[in-house]
C-alpha cells in the first residue's frame, strides 16, 4: 500500500473549486469524495457528524443570527450561527426535525453548544482542504 493511501495516490480530477467547496459544505466529506479522496471524505463525514450528534445529545442550543441585546452578544451569536451553519446539511436536517433546545444555564448544554460549533468549524477546515486539492496546492 502506498504511503499516501487515504485517497491521494492519484492526481485529483479537474473540478470546479467553487462547486467542490459548496459540495463539501453541504455534505461534509462529499467534496473529498468527489475528488477521489474517499477515505478522507468518510473520515471528514464521520468526524463532523459525531461532533454534531454529541452536541445534540447534550442538548446544546443553536445560535440565532438575531440574538443578543448588545453589540458583543450579537457578534458572539452571529459568529456561533455561522459556525453552526458550516455543518451544512447536518444543521439543516437537525432544524428540519425541530431541534431547538432552549438556551438554559447548564454546563452540559453549554458543552453541547460548543460541540455543535466545533462540528461546523471542522467542516470549514475540510472545505479549505478540498479547495486546496482542487487548485493543486496539495495532493
Amino acid at each position: 500500500m502506498p504511503a499516501t493511501s487515504i485517497g491521494s495516490s492519484t492526481p485529483a480530477p479537474i473540478r470546479s473549486p467553487y462547486l467542490t467547496v459548496a459540495l463539501s459544505w453541504l455534505i461534509p466529506g462529499a467534496g473529498h469524495f468527489w475528488l477521489g479522496r474517499r477515505g478522507r471524505g468518510v473520515i471528514v463525514f464521520a468526524t463532523v457528524l459525531v461532533a454534531f450528534v454529541i452536541g445534540a445529545l447534550m442538548r446544546g442550543p443553536l445560535f440565532q443570527p438575531s440574538g443578543g441585546s448588545d453589540v458583543l452578544s450579537r457578534l458572539i451569536q452571529l459568529g456561533g450561527f455561522i459556525a453552526d451553519l458550516a455543518s451544512g446539511l447536518v444543521y439543516f436536517v437537525a432544524v428540519w426535525f425541530g431541534y431547538a433546545p432552549p438556551d438554559q444555564a447548564s454546563h452540559t448544554a453549554d458543552y453541547g453548544s460548543k460541540f455543535i460549533v466545533m462540528a461546523g468549524l471542522l467542516n470549514l477546515l475540510a472545505m479549505v482542504d478540498a479547495y486546496e486539492i482542487t487548485t493543486r496546492q496539495k495532493d
Binding site: 499516501t4 493511501s5 487515504i6 478522507r40 475540510a126
Partner: peptide
C-alpha cells in the same frame, strides 16, 4: 475529534 481533522487536512502522507 479536533486532532483527527487537523491530522487529516494538514499533512501529505498517512
Amino acid at each position: 475529534l479536533a486532532s483527527v481533522m487537523l491530522g487529516l487536512v494538514t499533512k501529505r502522507t498517512d
